[in-house]
């Protein structure tokens, strides 16, 4: 089961990378961009009997290690 864990800084936490990318996009002329947040996607290939179990496992992994709950949010996405 392929599962993606998407990790982003929480809304209240300043994302300096996002700001830098926003400035670069504005320099290129993409003036319509109002905000950029840079996160990371962690792709997992999980051996599980069904989708629910795979999601549950990915949740545990995200809480334990993949995201830092002090500063980051995560969402889990089933790829296939």
């Amino acid at each position: 089961m392929k599962i993606a864990v998407n990790v982003h800084l929480k809304a209240g936490v300043l994302d300096p990378q996002g700001k830098a990318v926003l400035h670069a996009l504005h320099t290129l002329g993409f003036k319509e961009v109002e905000d950029v947040r840079v996160g990371k996607q962690i792709l997992l290939n999980i051996n599980a009997k069904d989708k629910e179990e795979a999601i549950k496992k990915a949740e545990e992994m995200a809480k334990e290690l993949l995201a830092n709950p002090v500063i980051e949010n995560y969402e889990i996405e089933v790829k296939e």
Partner: peptide, 16 residues
């Protein structure tokens, strides 16, 4: 911080 022996977390320096 990551080991939870101290509270809080670190992020990238504001000016990168």
């Amino acid at each position: 911080l990551e080991s939870h022996l101290l509270p809080g977390a670190m992020t990238r320096n504001e000016n990168l």
